[in-house]
């Protein structure tokens, strides 16, 4: 058996794969946070709850309506996105003139309510969500065995991240978004409906969280608590990357997932802590974050 630094290659690659999967979710979630924050100046604490909501929508669609994974992959982000739009219209839009911390506190309350509701009805134990038949089983890569679904998660997250990046950097809608991030009043004076843009952006960010949630459903258990623990790690990711750059959020997400995987191989006790330790180091060395433009 081949060894690297006294660790069997299989074990190393296995943990790196786990890290890559986690990193995929970090990347998708920190991307959504960055998109929302860029335009709305709101830290969406409910992002974790919306991720949980995405997974639950998939689970409920399957359990009560018999709607399977593939339609759910479209429906879950759509439903979570619409939910986000309602939240923005009814509440967040009233908070833009106040201190940004109120947006954080409001979405924190929203996260508690969402989590509380699902806990009330479904308890804290997770519900399994089966891997769709098309992606069941695995592939022997020669050096390791890759469960097909996990491979799909990595591919899908890359598509989502690249797609969102292209939407923002390469399309006309994206140019409105970037311009409104710089100077919303002027863009509105040009005749662009910026309030609508804000609503859609929060909807898009929420939908991204929902999509991450349905992708996660077969990997992790569908549980009311799945989002709240994750969101705090994603906050650390966002502090490390800085929210000034979409690409920065994506790259930092994958990197930290891999760093976590590596730590699991070499020093398993610290694997929960490594992201926070990296955050502390980055704060010492580069307080604005690796890709931060706003100090």
């Amino acid at each position: 058996m081949t060894m690297i630094f006294g660790i069997p290659v299989q074990a190393l690659l296995g943990q790196l794969l786990v890290g890559l999967i986690n990193g995929s979710f970090y990347a998708m979630l920190s991307l959504g946070l960055a998109v929302i924050f860029g335009l709305l100046r709101v830290i969406n604490f409910a992002h974790g709850a919306q991720y949980m909501l995405g997974a639950f929508v998939g689970y409920l669609l399957l359990t009560y309506l018999g709607i399977g994974y593939w339609p759910a992959l479209i429906l879950a982000p759509l439903i979570v996105g619409l939910f986000g739009i309602v939240v923005e219209r009814l509440a967040l839009s009233r908070l833009y003139d106040t201190d940004p911390l109120y947006g954080l506190l409001f979405t924190f309350g929203l996260a508690l309510v969402l989590e509380g509701i699902f806990r009330y009805y479904y308890g804290v134990s997770g519900n399994p969500y089966a891997v769709p038949p098309l992606l069941a089983g695995g592939t022997n890569l020669g050096f390791m065995f890759l469960p097909n679904y996990r491979g799909w998660v990595v591919v899908a997250s890359l598509i989502v991240c690249f797609g969102t990046w292209a939407l923002i950097e390469k399309t006309r809608l994206g140019s409105y978004l970037r311009a409104a991030t710089e100077n919303p009043r002027l863009v509105q004076a040009f005749g662009v409906n910026v309030p609508l843009l804000l609503t859609l952006t929060y909807g898009l960010g929420s939908a991204l969280a929902g999509l991450a949630g349905i992708l996660a459903a077969p990997v992790y258990q569908v549980s009311p608590l799945m989002g709240s623990d994750l969101i705090i790690v994603v906050f650390a990711v966002v502090v490390i990357g800085g929210m000034g750059s979409i690409l920065g959020a994506i790259v930092t997400g994958y990197m930290l997932g891999l760093a976590e995987g590596l730590t699991k191989v070499f020093y398993p006790e610290a694997s929960n802590l490594v992201v926070f330790v990296i955050m502390a180091i980055v704060l010492l060395v580069r307080p604005a974050g690796l890709f931060g433009r706003d100090a």
Binding site: S175, R178, A179, F190, G191, V192
Partner: peptide, 19 residues
């Protein structure tokens, strides 16, 4: 002037909608 740094010259040019 309100020229946007994150937009190219082209994008700046076509930013205001045709009214």
């Amino acid at each position: 002037r309100g020229i946007f740094a994150t937009l190219t010259v082209d994008e700046n040019l076509v930013l205001p909608p045709v009214v």
